[in-house]
Amino acid sequence: MTKFLLPLGGFIAIFAFLFIGLGLNPREVPSPFIGKAAPTFELGNLHRPDSRFGTQDMAGKVWLLNVWASWCVACRDEHPLLVDLAKQDTIPIVGLNYKDKQDQALAWLKQFGNPYRVAVMDADGRIGIDFGVYGVPETFLIDKKGIIRFKHIGPITKKAWEEKMLPLVRELQKS
């Protein structure tokens, strides 16, 4: 009587999904931007507020957009790595200072070092919303045509950088 096996079959199917589910992170939301043009912005420079900086200034370059804030504790974890990258001149990094105060942000950079080619102020978080930022830090990898190629949520670890991001950066820089 196969019909009596149906409940078992149903259970096995659910079980398989639950088992796979154990290895997934339900809180990580993939960005719908991958492969799409990065939203454009023009914001005041953190160090010189009267001068503006926009996405078009990075056209033709492969660059990182790093969303950070002085109130963000996890940002300190990834900061040394960013400073290293800047020293080695691997890739230009633009800092999007998210919902922060200028004096605090500047003090923070003074204390931990400034890896940013340019840091811009997104005081009310409006540009953050355009980029779909939901946690800080977040880092976007943008190619020469202004297309978002990769998004890292949370602090960038050495492992994540070397295994996932760096190869992609090299490839994009070649093309």
Binding site: V29, P32, I129, D130, G132, Y134
Partner: peptide, 8 residues
């Protein structure tokens, strides 16, 4: 909302 954060 969906263009920024996806169907999620």
């Amino acid at each position: 909302m969906v263009t920024r954060y996806g169907d999620f």
